[in-house]
Design a protein around this nucleic acid. Structure first.
Lengths: 254, 254
DNA sequence: CGGCTCGTTGATCAGGATCAATTATCGTGG
DNA sequence: CCACGATAATTGATCCTGATCAACGAGCCG
């Protein structure tokens, strides 16, 4: 993992969990002081990871547990001949490495999509957490189930939807997630995926992704410029993807 | 859910968890008496479900938690126009409805593939379990991660593998799972999937599934007769699917 | 300026979808 | 025991979505 060691350039590294700016967002449920104190006690580092490098490498054992503090990342698996499947994308507040930390070796890799900041939690203390902090343990399991549910949805896309439907589904689901984090202003948000990322996530070729992508743009579903995506027609995009509005209840932030 | 109410025809319904025949299998890790006693106290029913009916319906709220005691099942999602994606298959000893029980409403359905027996656990007491039984809570989370890891693998199949590779991957992964349960004798095991099930799991059309399936049979990878599948060439099948041998550590049985 | 990576666009190809017809397989009732 | 209808599997013909090949333009960095 590529890491900045010079913490002096990381003003937020010193911020206590109780004053975590993420926690203030409406996407996340409130926590008791005790829970926050325990989280703080588990936190062993605050790291910067450069875009494109692994936060957890495939096959890594004893990977720590992370919370994505800022930036985007994704989970992926590769086949021996190099084919890569992106399993799901990770946004700020998402937990990262839970599967790797419970199972013995990581079955997947996690790579930083943008420059990223992560909170690092001691893997050894996860067990401690289950013993002492049932609320947090429950929330950990909850977050795991939520991630599975996202993978489920991606599997539906790749297995059943056409190329255009897949892109529409990807775009709205990311839009909605960004929205709950307050990252959307005026229907537009920072969209850091390359077309190669989309292709690998959707099970499409790079070329076909490009063609379908620009077809949907010409159709007026969305616009893309300067790394920002503007969802011009959310209704139509959602309908094209058959992706239901699913109200987002505040979720736990570990 | 279609249920037999006449328990008299269910001799195993009265068997205490401590004498659970599944528990004796090498696939499952040993448990303390305390843990087993708690599991027993959570168990509120032992039900038979007919093949083809839902154990958990899509959108169901307050679904209970189950362990699959005997038979096969699968998780699935459907799109409004009827397209169906099978997310993963469930074999005896697998937990079922964990996601539905943690999240508020079930995002998927679970259907019995064969006639099935399930142990029913009180959903209300799951929280109790997290408070009192950290070991079991940890194992629940572990089982959740394991299921996610299976969905991950299916997503790799559907996103990256060719039709033949997908079928090969499905066949071996089911073979291996059946093997750990002692269901395989002489390289062959009961294989209850219809071609429609395979098609829906692999994101292929029914017709193409049939053609590829018989091509692989003619190629000598496996044979299928009388509902039993015989894996004639496990090595080649595994290589075709690029599915690595992954040693199975004993897993928790709740 | 050259050498990257990334996106775009056109031409061609093929894997798998769709359509259609036939053949087991099986449970059910006469 | 057989006839029947329903469901599941097979096979051939044709079509089309999306893969592959190839060339080119745009932005970016050294």
């Amino acid at each position: 993992m590529l890491v900045y060691t010079d913490k002096s350039r990381l003003p937020r590294a010193g911020t206590p969990c109780s004053a975590c700016p993420l926690r203030a967002k409406p996407a996340f449920a409130d926590k008791t002081v005790d829970d926050i104190a325990f989280i703080q006690s588990m936190k062993i580092d605050h790291r910067l990871v450069k875009a494109g490098s692994d936060i957890i490498s495939p096959g890594e054992t004893d990977a720590e547990l992370f919370t994505l503090f800022a930036g985007w990342a994704y989970r992926y698996k590769t086949l021996p001949d190099g084919r890569r499947q992106i399993l799901n994308f990770l946004l700020p507040g998402d937990i990262l490495g839970l599967q790797a930390s419970l199972l013995s070796a990581s079955q997947h890799g996690i790579e930083a999509l943008t420059d990223v900041e992560v909170c690092v939690f001691s893997r050894r203390r996860v067990w401690d957490l289950f013993v002492k902090m049932p609320t947090l343990a429950y929330e950990l399991a909850w977050l795991g189930s939520r991630e599975e549910s996202m993978v489920d949805e991606n599997l539906v896309s790749v297995g059943q939807r056409s190329a255009a439907e897949r892109i529409a589904a990807l775009v709205i689901s990311l839009f909605r997630r960004a929205e709950t984090l307050g990252l959307v202003s005026d229907k537009s948000f920072q969209f850091p995926l390359s077309q190669q990322h989309m292709a690998d996530a959707l099970g499409l070729s790079l070329v076909h992704t490009s063609k379908t992508w620009s077809r949907l743009r010409r159709a007026g579903l969305f616009a893309f410029a300067g790394g920002r995506l503007t969802l011009l027609n959310p209704r139509l995009t959602a309908r094209m993807a058959s992706l239901f509005e699913r109200e987002m209840t505040p979720r736990p932030l570990i």
